[in-house]
Amino acid sequence: MTSHAEFGERTPGSEVAKVFGDHIRGKTILVTGVSPKGIGASTALALASQQPAMLILASRTPSKVDEVGRQILAEHPTTRLEIVPLDLGSQQSVRAAATSIAQLTPHLDLLINNAGVVVTSRHATPEGIEQQFGTNHIGPFLLTNLLLPLLRAAARAPSAVPGATRVVSLSSAGHRLSPIRFSDYNFAPREVPPEEDHFRPLAGAFAKCTPDGYNGIVTYAQSKTANILFTLSLQRGLAGEGITAYSLHPGSIETELSRNQDEELNAQFSKVALYWKTVDEGCSTTLVAATDPALNDINGLYLVDCQFKDPAPHASDPVSAERLWKLSEELVGQKFDFTATA
Protein backbone atom coordinates (compact mmCIF):
# COMPACT_ATOMS: atom_id res chain seq x y z
CA MET A 1 0.00 0.00 0.00
CA THR A 2 0.95 3.63 -0.43
CA SER A 3 0.99 5.96 2.57
CA HIS A 4 -1.79 8.27 1.32
CA ALA A 5 -4.95 6.45 0.29
CA GLU A 6 -6.60 9.81 -0.38
CA PHE A 7 -4.28 10.55 -3.31
CA GLY A 8 -5.99 9.80 -6.59
CA GLU A 9 -6.84 10.79 -10.12
CA ARG A 10 -7.03 14.54 -9.48
CA THR A 11 -4.19 14.93 -6.99
CA PRO A 12 -1.67 17.51 -8.24
CA GLY A 13 1.94 16.40 -8.46
CA SER A 14 2.98 19.64 -6.82
CA GLU A 15 1.01 18.57 -3.74
CA VAL A 16 2.63 15.12 -3.72
CA ALA A 17 6.07 16.74 -3.89
CA LYS A 18 5.29 18.93 -0.87
CA VAL A 19 4.01 15.99 1.16
CA PHE A 20 7.14 13.96 0.40
CA GLY A 21 9.56 16.89 0.35
CA ASP A 22 11.80 15.29 2.95
CA HIS A 23 12.38 12.43 0.50
CA ILE A 24 13.39 14.80 -2.31
CA ARG A 25 15.64 17.26 -0.50
CA GLY A 26 19.31 16.53 -0.97
CA LYS A 27 18.71 13.83 -3.61
CA THR A 28 20.38 13.55 -7.00
CA ILE A 29 17.63 12.94 -9.54
CA LEU A 30 17.51 12.24 -13.26
CA VAL A 31 14.36 12.77 -15.35
CA THR A 32 14.28 11.79 -19.03
CA GLY A 33 12.02 13.19 -21.73
CA VAL A 34 11.55 16.78 -20.57
CA SER A 35 9.79 19.27 -22.81
CA PRO A 36 7.40 22.20 -22.28
CA LYS A 37 3.77 21.32 -21.51
CA GLY A 38 4.67 17.67 -20.86
CA ILE A 39 4.58 15.63 -17.69
CA GLY A 40 8.37 15.41 -17.73
CA ALA A 41 8.46 19.18 -17.25
CA SER A 42 5.80 19.11 -14.52
CA THR A 43 7.68 16.29 -12.78
CA ALA A 44 10.92 18.27 -12.90
CA LEU A 45 9.26 21.45 -11.64
CA ALA A 46 7.65 19.63 -8.73
CA LEU A 47 10.96 18.03 -7.78
CA ALA A 48 12.85 21.32 -8.09
CA SER A 49 10.42 22.93 -5.63
CA GLN A 50 11.75 20.66 -2.85
CA GLN A 51 15.47 21.44 -3.10
CA PRO A 52 17.13 18.35 -4.58
CA ALA A 53 20.92 18.33 -4.46
CA MET A 54 21.05 18.02 -8.25
CA LEU A 55 18.37 17.74 -10.90
CA ILE A 56 19.51 16.29 -14.22
CA LEU A 57 17.27 16.64 -17.24
CA ALA A 58 18.04 14.35 -20.16
CA SER A 59 16.17 14.95 -23.39
CA ARG A 60 16.46 14.80 -27.15
CA THR A 61 15.64 18.38 -28.24
CA PRO A 62 17.98 21.01 -26.73
CA SER A 63 15.68 23.97 -27.33
CA LYS A 64 12.79 22.30 -25.51
CA VAL A 65 14.69 21.08 -22.48
CA ASP A 66 16.48 24.44 -22.24
CA GLU A 67 13.09 26.17 -22.09
CA VAL A 68 12.06 23.96 -19.18
CA GLY A 69 15.41 24.59 -17.52
CA ARG A 70 14.88 28.34 -17.72
CA GLN A 71 11.44 27.97 -16.15
CA ILE A 72 12.82 25.87 -13.31
CA LEU A 73 15.58 28.37 -12.55
CA ALA A 74 13.15 31.29 -12.74
CA GLU A 75 10.89 29.66 -10.14
CA HIS A 76 13.60 27.91 -8.09
CA PRO A 77 16.86 29.81 -8.70
CA THR A 78 18.95 27.84 -6.20
CA THR A 79 18.40 24.54 -8.00
CA ARG A 80 21.56 22.87 -9.26
CA LEU A 81 20.36 21.98 -12.74
CA GLU A 82 22.24 19.95 -15.33
CA ILE A 83 21.11 19.16 -18.89
CA VAL A 84 22.30 16.12 -20.83
CA PRO A 85 21.48 15.37 -24.50
CA LEU A 86 19.70 12.02 -24.81
CA ASP A 87 17.98 10.37 -27.75
CA LEU A 88 16.62 7.07 -26.45
CA GLY A 89 16.10 5.90 -30.02
CA SER A 90 19.87 5.79 -30.54
CA GLN A 91 21.99 3.40 -28.53
CA GLN A 92 25.05 5.52 -29.30
CA SER A 93 23.30 8.55 -27.78
CA VAL A 94 22.24 6.53 -24.73
CA ARG A 95 25.80 5.41 -24.09
CA ALA A 96 27.13 8.95 -24.50
CA ALA A 97 24.48 10.28 -22.11
CA ALA A 98 25.32 7.65 -19.48
CA THR A 99 28.99 8.68 -19.68
CA SER A 100 28.06 12.36 -19.30
CA ILE A 101 25.85 11.63 -16.29
CA ALA A 102 28.62 9.65 -14.60
CA GLN A 103 30.89 12.65 -15.05
CA LEU A 104 28.35 14.89 -13.30
CA THR A 105 27.76 12.74 -10.22
CA PRO A 106 29.18 9.65 -8.53
CA HIS A 107 25.73 8.54 -7.39
CA LEU A 108 22.09 8.72 -8.45
CA ASP A 109 19.19 8.49 -6.00
CA LEU A 110 16.26 8.56 -8.42
CA LEU A 111 16.03 7.63 -12.09
CA ILE A 112 12.72 8.56 -13.68
CA ASN A 113 12.32 6.99 -17.11
CA ASN A 114 9.67 9.40 -18.34
CA ALA A 115 10.54 9.73 -22.04
CA GLY A 116 8.55 7.99 -24.74
CA VAL A 117 7.26 8.27 -28.28
CA VAL A 118 4.00 7.49 -30.05
CA VAL A 119 4.04 6.99 -33.82
CA THR A 120 1.43 5.74 -36.25
CA SER A 121 3.66 4.86 -39.19
CA ARG A 122 6.65 2.55 -39.43
CA HIS A 123 10.02 3.93 -38.41
CA ALA A 124 13.16 2.23 -37.12
CA THR A 125 15.99 3.18 -34.79
CA PRO A 126 19.53 3.39 -36.22
CA GLU A 127 19.97 -0.20 -35.01
CA GLY A 128 16.98 -1.36 -37.09
CA ILE A 129 14.57 -1.84 -34.18
CA GLU A 130 10.93 -0.78 -34.52
CA GLN A 131 10.91 2.78 -33.23
CA GLN A 132 8.43 2.50 -30.37
CA PHE A 133 9.95 -0.70 -28.98
CA GLY A 134 13.45 0.69 -29.51
CA THR A 135 12.79 4.09 -27.94
CA ASN A 136 10.27 3.24 -25.24
CA HIS A 137 11.92 0.07 -23.99
CA ILE A 138 15.37 -0.70 -25.40
CA GLY A 139 16.66 2.85 -24.79
CA PRO A 140 15.56 2.94 -21.11
CA PHE A 141 16.74 -0.66 -20.65
CA LEU A 142 20.24 0.30 -21.78
CA LEU A 143 20.33 3.62 -19.93
CA THR A 144 19.14 2.12 -16.65
CA ASN A 145 21.65 -0.71 -16.77
CA LEU A 146 24.50 1.65 -17.61
CA LEU A 147 23.51 3.84 -14.64
CA LEU A 148 23.14 0.97 -12.16
CA PRO A 149 26.64 1.63 -10.71
CA LEU A 150 25.48 5.16 -9.78
CA LEU A 151 22.23 3.83 -8.28
CA ARG A 152 24.17 1.21 -6.32
CA ALA A 153 26.52 3.90 -5.02
CA ALA A 154 23.54 5.88 -3.72
CA ALA A 155 21.98 2.80 -2.12
CA ARG A 156 25.26 1.90 -0.38
CA ALA A 157 25.86 5.35 1.11
CA PRO A 158 26.01 5.31 4.94
CA SER A 159 22.96 7.58 5.19
CA ALA A 160 20.90 5.72 2.58
CA VAL A 161 17.50 4.37 3.53
CA PRO A 162 16.93 0.91 2.02
CA GLY A 163 14.44 1.14 -0.82
CA ALA A 164 14.64 4.91 -1.22
CA THR A 165 16.94 4.59 -4.25
CA ARG A 166 14.53 3.98 -7.11
CA VAL A 167 13.97 3.43 -10.80
CA VAL A 168 10.56 4.65 -11.97
CA SER A 169 9.40 3.80 -15.49
CA LEU A 170 6.32 5.26 -17.13
CA SER A 171 4.12 2.70 -18.83
CA SER A 172 0.50 3.06 -19.96
CA ALA A 173 -2.89 1.44 -19.51
CA GLY A 174 -2.48 0.69 -23.21
CA HIS A 175 -0.13 -2.15 -22.26
CA ARG A 176 -3.24 -4.31 -21.89
CA LEU A 177 -3.64 -4.43 -25.66
CA SER A 178 -0.51 -6.45 -26.41
CA PRO A 179 2.00 -8.81 -24.82
CA ILE A 180 5.57 -8.94 -26.13
CA ARG A 181 5.64 -10.30 -29.65
CA PHE A 182 8.82 -12.29 -29.17
CA SER A 183 8.39 -13.92 -32.58
CA ASP A 184 7.84 -10.55 -34.26
CA TYR A 185 8.95 -7.70 -31.97
CA ASN A 186 9.60 -5.50 -35.02
CA PHE A 187 6.00 -6.04 -36.19
CA ALA A 188 6.87 -7.26 -39.68
CA PRO A 189 3.98 -8.26 -39.23
CA ARG A 190 3.90 -12.02 -39.36
CA GLU A 191 1.92 -14.70 -37.62
CA VAL A 192 2.79 -15.18 -33.96
CA PRO A 193 1.66 -17.73 -31.35
CA PRO A 194 -1.71 -16.88 -29.76
CA GLU A 195 -0.07 -15.95 -26.45
CA GLU A 196 2.01 -13.30 -28.24
CA ASP A 197 -0.79 -11.83 -30.30
CA HIS A 198 -2.50 -8.57 -29.47
CA PHE A 199 -5.92 -8.17 -27.93
CA ARG A 200 -8.74 -8.71 -30.40
CA PRO A 201 -10.90 -7.24 -31.61
CA LEU A 202 -9.42 -3.78 -32.03
CA ALA A 203 -11.99 -1.42 -33.43
CA GLY A 204 -12.12 1.82 -35.37
CA ALA A 205 -8.96 3.91 -35.49
CA PHE A 206 -7.21 1.50 -33.12
CA ALA A 207 -7.38 -1.21 -35.78
CA LYS A 208 -6.06 0.89 -38.65
CA CYS A 209 -2.83 -0.27 -40.26
CA THR A 210 -0.56 1.42 -42.79
CA PRO A 211 -0.32 -0.17 -46.26
CA ASP A 212 2.68 -2.22 -45.08
CA GLY A 213 0.66 -3.67 -42.19
CA TYR A 214 2.04 -1.51 -39.39
CA ASN A 215 -0.28 -0.82 -36.43
CA GLY A 216 1.08 1.90 -34.17
CA ILE A 217 -1.37 1.15 -31.35
CA VAL A 218 -0.26 -2.49 -31.08
CA THR A 219 3.44 -1.63 -31.22
CA TYR A 220 3.00 1.13 -28.63
CA ALA A 221 1.15 -1.32 -26.37
CA GLN A 222 3.96 -3.85 -26.74
CA SER A 223 6.52 -1.23 -25.68
CA LYS A 224 4.45 -0.32 -22.63
CA THR A 225 4.16 -3.97 -21.60
CA ALA A 226 7.93 -4.09 -21.90
CA ASN A 227 8.25 -1.21 -19.42
CA ILE A 228 6.38 -3.20 -16.78
CA LEU A 229 8.21 -6.47 -17.43
CA PHE A 230 11.53 -4.60 -17.25
CA THR A 231 10.47 -3.18 -13.88
CA LEU A 232 9.63 -6.69 -12.68
CA SER A 233 13.11 -7.85 -13.66
CA LEU A 234 14.68 -4.95 -11.78
CA GLN A 235 12.64 -5.72 -8.68
CA ARG A 236 13.68 -9.36 -8.74
CA GLY A 237 17.30 -8.72 -9.66
CA LEU A 238 17.94 -5.86 -7.21
CA ALA A 239 16.15 -7.35 -4.23
CA GLY A 240 18.34 -6.92 -1.19
CA GLU A 241 20.47 -4.13 -2.68
CA GLY A 242 18.39 -1.26 -1.35
CA ILE A 243 17.07 -0.32 -4.80
CA THR A 244 13.39 -0.52 -5.70
CA ALA A 245 11.63 -0.16 -9.04
CA TYR A 246 8.07 0.73 -10.02
CA SER A 247 6.10 1.27 -13.21
CA LEU A 248 2.96 3.31 -13.66
CA HIS A 249 0.21 4.65 -15.87
CA PRO A 250 0.21 8.47 -15.56
CA GLY A 251 -3.36 8.84 -16.88
CA SER A 252 -4.82 10.51 -19.94
CA ILE A 253 -3.11 13.85 -20.43
CA GLU A 254 -3.12 16.19 -23.42
CA THR A 255 0.57 16.57 -24.26
CA GLU A 256 2.78 16.64 -27.35
CA LEU A 257 3.07 12.85 -27.09
CA SER A 258 -0.07 12.63 -29.25
CA ARG A 259 1.15 15.07 -31.89
CA ASN A 260 1.56 12.32 -34.51
CA GLN A 261 -2.01 11.04 -34.13
CA ASP A 262 -4.65 11.95 -36.69
CA GLU A 263 -8.06 13.41 -35.80
CA GLU A 264 -9.80 10.05 -36.01
CA LEU A 265 -7.41 8.45 -33.54
CA ASN A 266 -7.58 11.44 -31.17
CA ALA A 267 -11.38 11.25 -31.29
CA GLN A 268 -11.35 7.57 -30.36
CA PHE A 269 -8.98 8.19 -27.46
CA SER A 270 -11.27 10.96 -26.22
CA LYS A 271 -14.08 8.41 -25.96
CA VAL A 272 -12.15 5.91 -23.87
CA ALA A 273 -10.69 8.45 -21.41
CA LEU A 274 -13.23 9.42 -18.78
CA TYR A 275 -11.08 12.25 -17.40
CA TRP A 276 -8.23 14.22 -18.96
CA LYS A 277 -5.64 15.29 -16.41
CA THR A 278 -3.65 18.49 -16.28
CA VAL A 279 0.11 18.02 -16.56
CA ASP A 280 0.39 18.71 -12.82
CA GLU A 281 -2.12 15.94 -12.10
CA GLY A 282 -0.37 13.79 -14.69
CA CYS A 283 2.92 13.71 -12.77
CA SER A 284 1.44 12.82 -9.37
CA THR A 285 1.65 9.03 -9.78
CA THR A 286 5.27 9.35 -10.91
CA LEU A 287 6.08 11.30 -7.78
CA VAL A 288 4.34 8.81 -5.50
CA ALA A 289 6.31 5.98 -7.14
CA ALA A 290 9.55 7.95 -6.72
CA THR A 291 9.20 9.36 -3.22
CA ASP A 292 6.55 7.71 -1.04
CA PRO A 293 8.49 6.05 1.85
CA ALA A 294 5.81 3.38 2.16
CA LEU A 295 7.15 2.00 -1.12
CA ASN A 296 10.62 1.35 0.29
CA ASP A 297 9.42 -2.21 0.81
CA ILE A 298 8.25 -3.58 -2.53
CA ASN A 299 4.54 -4.29 -2.27
CA GLY A 300 3.41 -3.80 -5.83
CA LEU A 301 4.60 -3.41 -9.40
CA TYR A 302 2.34 -0.91 -11.17
CA LEU A 303 0.50 2.21 -10.05
CA VAL A 304 -2.49 4.08 -11.45
CA ASP A 305 -3.86 7.32 -9.98
CA CYS A 306 -1.31 7.22 -7.15
CA GLN A 307 -2.30 3.73 -5.96
CA PHE A 308 -1.27 0.18 -6.78
CA LYS A 309 -3.22 -1.70 -9.41
CA ASP A 310 -2.61 -5.07 -11.03
CA PRO A 311 -1.31 -4.86 -14.60
CA ALA A 312 -2.46 -7.29 -17.27
CA PRO A 313 -1.27 -10.85 -16.57
CA HIS A 314 1.02 -10.79 -19.61
CA ALA A 315 2.82 -7.78 -18.09
CA SER A 316 3.54 -9.43 -14.75
CA ASP A 317 4.70 -12.85 -15.93
CA PRO A 318 8.23 -13.62 -14.67
CA VAL A 319 8.93 -16.00 -17.57
CA SER A 320 8.12 -13.24 -20.08
CA ALA A 321 10.23 -10.82 -18.05
CA GLU A 322 13.22 -13.13 -18.28
CA ARG A 323 12.72 -13.68 -22.02
CA LEU A 324 12.47 -9.93 -22.57
CA TRP A 325 15.67 -9.30 -20.58
CA LYS A 326 17.59 -11.76 -22.75
CA LEU A 327 16.14 -10.31 -25.96
CA SER A 328 17.02 -6.79 -24.80
CA GLU A 329 20.61 -7.82 -24.06
CA GLU A 330 20.86 -9.25 -27.58
CA LEU A 331 19.53 -6.03 -29.09
CA VAL A 332 22.02 -3.81 -27.23
CA GLY A 333 24.90 -6.27 -27.62
CA GLN A 334 25.75 -6.33 -23.93
CA LYS A 335 24.92 -8.57 -20.99
CA PHE A 336 23.88 -7.16 -17.64
CA ASP A 337 24.18 -9.81 -14.93
CA PHE A 338 22.89 -8.64 -11.56
CA THR A 339 24.99 -11.15 -9.63
CA ALA A 340 28.17 -10.21 -11.51
CA THR A 341 27.82 -6.52 -10.73
CA ALA A 342 26.26 -6.62 -7.28
Results as ranks from 00 to 15, higher is better:
M1T: 13
A5G: 06
E6D: 13
E9M: 12
T11V: 03
G13L: 00
E15F: 03
K18Q: 14
V19N: 05
G21E: 02
T28Q: 10
I29A: 03
T32C: 12
S35W: 07
G40P: 13
S42K: 01
T43P: 01
A46V: 07
L47A: 08
P52R: 05
P52L: 09
P62W: 14
V65G: 09
Q71R: 02
H76F: 15
T78W: 02
T79P: 07
L86R: 04
L86I: 12
Q91P: 02
V94S: 01
V94K: 01
L110I: 15
N113G: 01
G116D: 08
V119H: 12
R122Q: 04
H123T: 08
A124H: 13
T125G: 08
G128K: 02
Q131A: 13
L142E: 02
T144C: 02
T144H: 00
L146H: 00
L147D: 07
L148C: 00
L150R: 13
A153E: 15
A154W: 09
A157K: 12
S159F: 11
S159T: 15
A160E: 09
V168A: 00
V168E: 00
V168L: 01
S171C: 14
S172N: 09
G174E: 02
G174T: 11
R176F: 10
S178I: 05
S183E: 13
D184K: 12
F187P: 00
P189A: 10
V192Q: 02
V192A: 01
H198L: 03
A203G: 14
A203M: 14
G204M: 05
A205D: 13
F206D: 04
A207S: 12
D212R: 12
G213F: 13
G213H: 11
V218N: 09
V218W: 11
V218H: 07
Y220N: 10
A221I: 07
Q222Y: 07
S223T: 04
A226F: 09
F230W: 03
A239N: 09
T244R: 14
A245C: 06
Y246M: 07
S247V: 00
I253K: 04
E256P: 14
L257F: 11
S258K: 15
R259K: 13
N260Y: 05
E263G: 05
Q268V: 09
S270I: 03
Y275T: 14
W276R: 15
K277M: 06
D280I: 06
V288Q: 03
V288T: 09
A290E: 08
A294M: 07
A294C: 09
L295H: 05
N296W: 10
L301K: 03
L303A: 08
D305V: 00
C306V: 08
F308S: 10
K309F: 13
K309R: 15
A312K: 11
H314W: 09
A321T: 00
S328A: 13
E329T: 07
Q334L: 05
K335Q: 15
D337P: 05
F338C: 12
T339E: 15
T339I: 14
A342E: 09
